[in-house]
Amino acid sequence: MKILAIDTSTHVMGAALAEDDKLLGEYITNFKKNHSLRLMPAIDHLMNELEIEPKELDAIAVAKGPGSYTGVRIGVTTAKSMAWALNIPVYGISSLQMLAQNGKYFSGYICPFMDARRGQVYTGLYTSENGCVKEVEKDRIIILEDWIDLLKEKQEPVLFLSQEWDKHKEAIQEKLSRQVVYGSFSDMLPKPSKLLEVVLNQGESISSHELVPEYTQLTEAEKNWLASNKGKRNDE
């Protein structure tokens, strides 16, 4: 079974290919450049190197968010459209779970996060079980300060994994002090091969039509509309 994995949910872009439980190739870049332009050439490069034709694929896995709205859409749209055209299933995996999987050997809590501006982060809390991380606190967007308070109550070591660790480490270390553990530079990098690990352990495939991004929040326009139309539902 050949699975292609795609991640464009942050400025890191990645594509990986596995056959059964063997990782055949992985391509990752970590710099700010256009995903829409570069993703398909990256997939093409990987497939060419591995001499695999699109029609040989059995499934596609993708990081479905949270993350950059546009980035997530590029990955999800590419994954579901390819899967639809090939009539194969897709796996939509949380971008945070993918990152948390880098800490699967850690025995405490694993906290992947991404900066979401205005003092907020996209984050969730995971623990590792038989080589695969599972969610213990749902993915969300939250004010970092509030999230730190919640982690403090846990009174257990937390492994932080994030590309923006340096930006937030002071705030985190100040409050959590000895609870804090953080990853090495390569642990901080989201890797599409980790999507494949999650898929192989506990993935549940869906049809391409059903795959939608996980933004964790409404659009700005919807939020404002709900605020000024109290009591109404968002779909009214």
Binding site: T77, S81, M82, A85
Partner: peptide, 8 residues
Amino acid sequence: NAAKAVAY
């Protein structure tokens, strides 16, 4: 991106 994916 959808068109590219299908074409590819």
